Lab assay of single mutants.
Amino acid sequence: SPEEIKAKALDLLNKKLHRANKFGQDQADIDSLQRQINRVEKFGVDLNSKLAEELGLV
């Protein structure tokens, strides 16, 4: 269901964000992850996106 997909995506992105902060990645990478999280919260996951591929939806 779209809600489950959204939850999985947010979980994955939050893990990536945590790792980025923990290991001191570029601020641009961290900002990009934050924008992705905001986009998923607002609009859900686009099944044509790279994120959908990472989640194994495509």
Rank of each mutant, 00 (worst) to 15 (best):
S1D: 12
S1L: 09
S1V: 08
P2C: 15
P2Y: 13
P2T: 11
P2H: 12
P2S: 11
P2F: 14
E3N: 08
E3L: 08
E3T: 08
E3D: 13
E3Q: 10
E3R: 07
E3F: 06
E4N: 10
E4Y: 12
E4L: 10
E4H: 11
I5Y: 07
I5M: 11
I5V: 10
K6F: 03
K6A: 06
K6H: 04
K6W: 05
K6G: 03
A7K: 14
A7Q: 13
K8T: 06
K8W: 05
K8F: 05
K8I: 11
K8L: 13
A9P: 00
A9E: 01
A9C: 05
A9R: 00
A9D: 01
L10T: 02
L10C: 02
L10F: 00
D11N: 05
D11R: 04
D11Q: 08
D11A: 08
D11M: 05
L12D: 03
L12M: 09
L13F: 00
L13K: 00
L13P: 00
L13C: 01
L13S: 00
L13G: 00
N14F: 12
N14K: 14
N14G: 07
N14C: 14
N14E: 09
N14T: 12
K15A: 12
K15T: 07
K15N: 10
K15C: 15
K15W: 03
K15P: 00
K15H: 08
K16P: 00
K16G: 03
K16V: 04
K16I: 07
K16Q: 11
K16N: 03
L17H: 02
L17K: 03
L17M: 08
L17A: 02
L17N: 00
L17V: 04
L17Y: 03
L17F: 03
H18F: 06
H18M: 12
H18R: 12
H18Q: 14
H18K: 13
H18S: 12
H18I: 14
H18N: 12
R19P: 03
R19H: 15
R19Y: 15
R19N: 15
R19C: 15
R19E: 15
R19G: 06
R19Q: 14
R19L: 15
A20R: 02
A20E: 04
A20P: 02
A20T: 03
A20Y: 10
N21Y: 10
N21Q: 15
N21A: 11
N21E: 14
N21M: 15
K22Q: 14
K22L: 15
K22P: 03
K22I: 13
K22M: 14
F23S: 13
F23E: 15
F23N: 14
F23R: 11
F23V: 13
F23K: 11
G24L: 06
G24Q: 08
G24W: 06
G24Y: 06
G24S: 07
G24F: 07
G24T: 06
G24M: 07
G24H: 08
Q25E: 11
Q25S: 14
Q25L: 13
Q25K: 12
Q25H: 13
D26W: 04
D26F: 06
D26G: 11
D26P: 14
D26R: 07
D26Y: 05
D26Q: 09
Q27C: 07
Q27K: 10
Q27I: 09
Q27S: 09
A28V: 10
A28S: 12
A28D: 11
A28K: 11
A28T: 11
D29L: 15
D29H: 14
D29G: 09
D29C: 15
I30E: 02
I30Y: 04
I30L: 06
I30D: 02
I30H: 03
I30C: 03
D31G: 05
D31Q: 09
D31A: 10
S32F: 13
S32T: 12
S32N: 13
S32H: 12
L33N: 00
L33R: 00
L33G: 00
L33A: 00
Q34A: 06
Q34I: 15
Q34W: 05
R35T: 10
R35C: 13
R35P: 01
R35S: 11
Q36F: 05
Q36S: 07
Q36H: 06
Q36Y: 04
Q36M: 13
Q36I: 12
I37N: 00
I37M: 04
I37W: 00
I37Y: 02
N38A: 15
N38R: 14
R39I: 14
R39C: 15
R39G: 09
R39H: 15
R39W: 15
R39L: 15
V40E: 01
V40H: 01
V40L: 03
V40A: 02
V40T: 06
E41H: 08
E41S: 07
E41K: 11
K42E: 14
K42W: 07
F43M: 09
F43C: 14
F43A: 05
G44R: 00
G44Q: 01
G44L: 01
G44E: 01
G44F: 00
G44M: 00
V45G: 02
V45I: 10
V45Y: 01
V45P: 03
V45L: 10
D46C: 09
L47G: 05
L47D: 04
L47Q: 07
N48C: 12
N48K: 10
N48Q: 09
S49C: 04
S49F: 02
S49G: 07
S49Q: 03
S49L: 02
S49Y: 02
S49T: 07
S49H: 03
K50S: 12
K50A: 14
K50H: 10
L51A: 02
L51V: 05
L51R: 00
L51H: 02
L51M: 06
L51Q: 02
L51I: 07
A52K: 02
A52D: 02
A52N: 03
A52S: 04
E53Q: 13
E53L: 13
E53P: 01
E53W: 13
E53S: 08
E54A: 08
E54S: 06
E54P: 00
E54Y: 07
L55F: 03
L55W: 02
L55E: 02
L55A: 02
L55V: 05
L55Q: 01
G56L: 06
G56S: 05
G56H: 06
G56I: 04
L57T: 03
L57F: 11
L57A: 04
L57W: 07
L57Y: 08
V58T: 13
V58Q: 11
